[in-house]
């Protein structure tokens, strides 16, 4: 069901060039700073460390000196769900409509004041992209001064996650409205991580718009739930049919293979399309 009857729908998505990513962590901090993400004295227990954007380090498992590593930034995948109809794993299980799929932008929302902390969504999310506030956020004395009014600080007992910097989309739309434009430009809406990445590894834009860089980089197949036509591009756990809107690109085959789980010998058969069609 399409909710937006006015004009064309957007489908905002992200492409990460894993051959450019250096694992520097700028995206993680730009995200935390943009979205008022709190921090604790000890953040080394990564299971309770709130990181909307988290950079994973993966290796090819070979021994010295054949070893290779690759960094993989992981925001919320903003899944379209099976058939790309908006039934994201998390949206499907939320009993409070605290997380919802916006058909006009393709963004999976999170309304903190609606969330009552059941954490079904965290269990449903195959990407560990959601985090629970086990404690109230506390900023050291005086540091509250840098909090941004664009994103409300969360409270104990709710789940939070990457929003594709939705407030930036709202701002861009507001500006377009004031200037009496029908739509926003590609560069008017960019996420904080994309903007900060010093390696230029992250590209953000509208996957439905063939003029946008994201579409050109991965060539999403509109008739196949946005599956990338570019053989060097892949999505994480493609075969779960979650239809993420975050794509990864790498020239390295072992990196692309790491994007999903394969039985022995299975990879050779599917390596150019990463599994079945979604139909």
């Amino acid at each position: 069901m399409k909710q937006d009857k006015h004009g064309k729908n957007h489908k905002f998505g992200m492409v990460v060039d894993l051959d450019k990513c250096t694992g520097c962590g700028s995206c993680m901090v730009a995200c935390m700073s943009e979205n008022n993400v709190p921090f604790k004295e000890d953040e080394s227990n990564k299971k309770d460390s709130l990181t909307w954007m988290r950079v994973y380090k993966i290796t090819n498992g070979k021994s010295f000196p054949e070893t290779e590593i690759c960094y993989m930034p992981r925001p919320c995948m903003h899944c379209g769900g099976k058939g790309d109809h908006g039934h994201s794993p998390c949206v499907s299980v939320c009993p409070a409509v605290a997380t919802d799929y916006d058909h006009s932008s393709g963004i999976v929302s999170q309304i903190y004041t609606r969330c009552f902390g059941c954490r079904y969504c965290m269990g449903a999310c195959p990407y560990h992209a959601r985090y629970f506030n086990w404690w109230d956020p506390k900023w050291p004395e005086g540091m509250e001064s840098y909090l941004s009014p664009d994103v409300s600080p969360r409270m104990r007992g709710v789940v939070e996650k990457c929003s594709f910097c939705f407030h930036r989309y709202q701002e861009a739309r507001d500006l377009a409205y004031v200037e009496e434009r029908d739509d926003i430009e590609e560069q008017e809406y960019q996420t904080a991580c994309t903007q900060a990445c010093p390696a230029g590894a992250i590209t953000f834009g509208d996957l439905n718009n063939p003029d946008h860089a994201v579409s050109q980089l991965v060539e999403p197949d509109a008739h196949n739930c946005g599956k990338p036509k570019n053989p060097k591009a892949f999505r994480l756990l493609e075969r779960l049919q979650t239809n993420p809107k975050v794509y990864y690109v790498s020239e390295r085959e072992w990196v692309r293979k790491a994007g999903d789980n394969y039985l022995d010998g299975e990879w050779e058969k599917v390596k150019n399309n990463h599994g079945k069609d979604h139909g």
Partner: peptide, 23 residues
């Protein structure tokens, strides 16, 4: 009130990029 640090896009050293310490 400063709330966010970003890279300056027209600066000849970093052209918009910024490291995590600067942010």
């Amino acid at each position: 009130r400063p709330v966010k640090i970003e890279g300056r896009a027209d600066y000849p050293v970093n052209t918009g990029g910024v490291c995590l310490h600067g942010v």
